[in-house]
Design a protein around this nucleic acid. Structure first.
Lengths: 196, 196
DNA sequence: TGTAATTTTGAACATTGTTCAACAAACAAA
DNA sequence: TTTGTTTGTTGAACAATGTTCAAAATTACA
């Protein structure tokens, strides 16, 4: 009974890895059952013995990518001292990760889940991701009165929505058309958020 | 030659009207060539003599909906005196319009255009829409020194991105799950933006 | 080794967007 | 009015997508 579970998990991982490779490579537009199955070395019909449907499989990748992104952010910012500048740096690393892998951004934020109610825990995970990346730093800033505690919740929300808005329009709509300008806007908004 | 053009424009409008009805009703998920053509009273093949493809047809609706939304906002806010409160009111009306017709939000911001380069003027129109709705009011506030002119561009950007972020997560991801909470967040962010 | 259980799959189906040869309607020329 | 040409319309077919299922292949085990 135990072996069966191990083997089952193994095959699932072949499909998941194949999907992750496609998402990181050419992005959502080439993620389909036949491409996934080809890459995993199975027929597309086999996919359905391990996953309810292809959306289910695709959403299985979320947790892995969050871990990868977390690692990416930590590596990029670990040497910085705590404080407002570190929140900015974490946010910029988070942004950079999605710019590097637009397919992952699409998966996290744009791709429609068939059954959004059933996937709500995953959605919640995505939604609170930036908060969790910055949580320690917010705490530090509040403890050391670097940030007005009255305003901290509003600021967290502002950070979340501004960054999602920026990433969304840039990745989904090529707006602004130049990365440089996009980057300038990110910096401007971050500086503004923590100004005064 | 003139008659031909009139008739052609007429048939185009049948398809466009059919698409608009579907978008305002059940939303993007039911917008497909067969549904559109059925409603327009033609075969789906006919659609292709009047439009390059279905995305082209769908994007034809953008301008009409912008006019409708503009009207909606004007009616909702025309009696208010100029000033910061009016910018807030215009923004809230803009948000309400998209909450009422989520399908139109999807069309404006989420739906992928096949050829994003070719559609860039339309994208630009969408992107600058809220700015244009508020343009007069920003001018008024700047002239009367109700807003720091140094910060006005940053504030406009903040407004745009926060509102798009909020609408996007609420409409596309049911987050937050309650409209009341969504509304609270919109108000909180608007108040914060114009505070101090 | 033979049989039962499990895993895998090819083939089929439904639903998309799109194309095209053929049909129908409108129009022009005789 | 008849005939021929141009224009508009469409059914049928195609390709790409997700999904299902009976049958084939493989594995487990008595």
């Amino acid at each position: 009974m135990k072996n069966k579970e191990i083997q089952e998990e193994r095959v699932r991982s072949y499909f998941i890895d194949a999907t992750k490779e496609l998402l990181k490579g050419e992005g959502l537009k080439v993620v389909n059952v036949r491409n996934i199955a080809d890459r995993a070395g199975y027929s597309s019909a086999t996919l359905y013995t391990y996953f309810k449907d292809v959306k289910d499989l695709i959403f299985e990748c979320v947790k892995d990518f969050q871990e990868e992104c977390t690692e990416y952010v930590i590596v990029d910012t670990k040497s910085l001292p705590s404080g407002v500048a570190k929140i900015k740096a974490i946010t910029k690393a988070y942004v950079k990760y999605f710019i590097q892998y637009p397919g992952i951004f699409e998966l996290f934020f744009i791709e429609k889940t068939r059954d959004i109610a059933h996937k709500q825990p995953t959605i919640e995970l995505i939604y609170t991701f930036l908060d969790r990346l910055c949580a320690e730093e917010w705490s530090y800033c509040l403890e050391n009165q670097l940030i007005d505690s009255e305003k901290s919740e509003i600021m967290k929300n502002q950070l979340r929505y501004v960054i999602i808005g920026l990433l969304f329009l840039y990745i989904n709509r090529r707006h602004p058309s130049e990365y440089k300008e996009f980057n300038r806007l990110v910096n401007e908004q971050l500086d503004n958020l923590f100004a005064e």
